[in-house]
Computed example of a mutant assay.
Amino acid sequence: MSSSTVPSTSSALRTRRRPAGEVVLGVDTHRDVHMAAVLSVSGAVLATDEFPATAAGYRDLLKRARKWGTVRRAGVEGTGSYGASLSRYLLAQGIDVFDVNRMDRADRRRRGKSDPLDAQNAAQSVLSGRARARAPELFRTCAQFTGVCSREDAGEEPVVQATRITLGLLAHRIGQLSEQIRDVEARLTRLVERHAPQLLDVVGIGPDTAVALLITVGDNPERLDSEASFVALCGVSPVERSSGLRQYRRLNRGGDRQANAALHRIVFTRLRVDPRTQDYYERRIKEGKARREIVRCPKRYAAREVFHLVKQLQSAPCS
């Protein structure tokens, strides 16, 4: 990360300092990139920098932050949206993640609006105690709210009472749906383990995507005569087009859309956890390729993987 006192980012990144106690991380999240700030426990800004919203970016963010000290707490804007993946990563690294609200209007008018300031504000919220709701505990806290006001709540304002009731009902509903999702996932896992267990060994393929692809295979067994036919069946084969002397390929909008969506989920899971896919993505980004264009090739690769695994299952002798 670049030091707030050093104008050159590259020179600051080369500077290695011995960790000086605990530091706090603050992150302003966006769809494609996150802005991070590292503050000392006294509130001094040690560094700010921008990172891609990818698994490789998260690792780099934490690695650089730890050069300034021990990271135990992090304030993240939007832990339920753009910051969800980063929050999960930080929690897995043993860091307490606090959900941070946007900078209040008065503070924004006084300090101005910029991503570095928002990231610094996220860390300051943790230091000051304003960010009290830890990301994994927020749901549990809301679930404790009862749907009926008790005598202790009788003195509350009507708006506060209505808010507590609504949050409690929503939390209970989320809990019920989460339990149903876990039950369905367990059932799907048992089905895949019975009919195509090899699919679950592939990076990025879970029970839901495996079932979606197996349904596509089962509905179209006559089209599994070649790798290319299955890729086309899933709607991830390139479509050749020409305009005058210009030859190009466009997005294939045909094929089984459920299988296409399953391959899409596989690729984006790999972008979070698979180093090979991450390296490929970063390399193509540097070449100036668009995100949509980059994703098409890994989707075709995933379809070919599934095809050969399914063909192995079909050719295996029945026991």
Rank of each mutant, 00 (worst) to 15 (best):
Arg253Thr: 13
Arg73Trp: 07
Asn220Gln: 05
Val310Phe: 06
Ala122Asp: 01
Arg253Ala: 13
Leu13Trp: 14
Arg14Trp: 14
Gly78Ile: 00
Ala262Ile: 04
Arg109Tyr: 06
Leu91Pro: 00
Pro136Thr: 02
Ser87Met: 01
Leu25Gln: 06
Ser237Gln: 07
Gln314Leu: 14
Ser85Trp: 11
Cys142Tyr: 14
Arg182Phe: 09
Gly288Lys: 03
Gly57Arg: 11
Val273Pro: 04
His30Glu: 01
Arg140Glu: 13
Lys113Leu: 12
Gln247Trp: 14
Glu22Pro: 02
Gly26Gln: 10
Leu263Arg: 08
Pro317Lys: 14
Val267Pro: 05
Gly206Leu: 03
Gly75Gln: 03
Ala186Tyr: 02
Gly78Ser: 01
Ala316Arg: 14
Arg72Ala: 07
Cys149Met: 13
Val38Ile: 13
Ala37Pro: 03
Arg73Ile: 07
Leu90Gly: 03
Glu222Ile: 12
Pro317His: 07
Asp96Lys: 11
Leu271Gly: 12
Cys234Ser: 02
Ile266Tyr: 06
Val6Met: 15
Arg272Trp: 05
Arg276Met: 14
Val239Leu: 12
Ala65Thr: 11
Leu169Glu: 12
Arg300Met: 02
Gly147Leu: 00
Val23Ile: 09
Val6Leu: 15
Asp225Gln: 15
Val211Met: 11
Asp28Ile: 03
Arg102Asn: 06
Ser319Gln: 14
Val236Trp: 06
Arg164Gln: 05
Val159Ser: 11
Arg304His: 12
Gly218Ala: 04
Tyr58Ala: 09
Arg132Lys: 14
Pro19Ile: 09
Asp208Met: 15
Asn260Val: 05
Ala119Leu: 09
Arg284Glu: 07
Gly94Tyr: 04
Gln258Arg: 14
Lys289Tyr: 11
Ala228Tyr: 07
Leu91Glu: 13
Leu199Cys: 07
Ser178Phe: 00
